[in-house]
Amino acid sequence: MSAPLRIGLPKGRILDDAGELFRAAGVDLAPLRADKRRLIHPLEAEGLGPVEVLVLRASDVAPYVEHGACAVGVVGNDTLEEQQPDVLWPLDLGIGRCRMCVAGLPGVDPFSLEQPRIATKYGRVAKAHFSARGLDAHIIELSGAIELAPLVGLADAIVDIVETGETLRQNGLVVHEPIFDVSARLVVNRAALRLQMAAVRGLLERLEAAVAAREEAP
């Protein structure tokens, strides 16, 4: 198959962390940093054939892969749980680790309210988590600065990813309950796994080895 293996990567910190893993897997992402305006980066990867890398918004990676515009991608399972795309997610890359949490002001227990108002970027995750507790939460979907919502009375609590907890602390918020652990995953289009099997499998196996090596390192 001569078509290039197209890889979708998310902008930002994950891209830097993924760079290390991809380099170990034989795909050097350095040209991406050299030319930030370029949208499609053709790369040569030893033994994988031609590769094209697209740098996307984190929330766009799964749609690109699901619809086959990219054969593989890197995206956090926070986004996967929220978007529920129909893709394979065969490998935990172990980078971009954080936790999906319910958080809020220390004195306010959202689980004791009849209909807690929850501000979040993750409407589906939040709804499902409160539903599982038998609570019909009122979800307020925001696209940024979620921590602000409980401070100004917009919401009783928030559902968001928490890395160090520093932002929460600075705003006087606490974690009420973790929901699940988050890390970046390799995702693969179902058809690409069959139609570009050699390249997809090659990349998957090399990344698996790179992840294992990284985790063994002190």
Binding site: A3, E66, H67, G68, D86, N189, R190, A191, R194, L195
Partner: peptide, 9 residues
């Protein structure tokens, strides 16, 4: 069954 340019079976 899969064919090129179709994202699923």
């Amino acid at each position: 069954g899969y064919v090129p340019n179709a994202a699923d079976a």
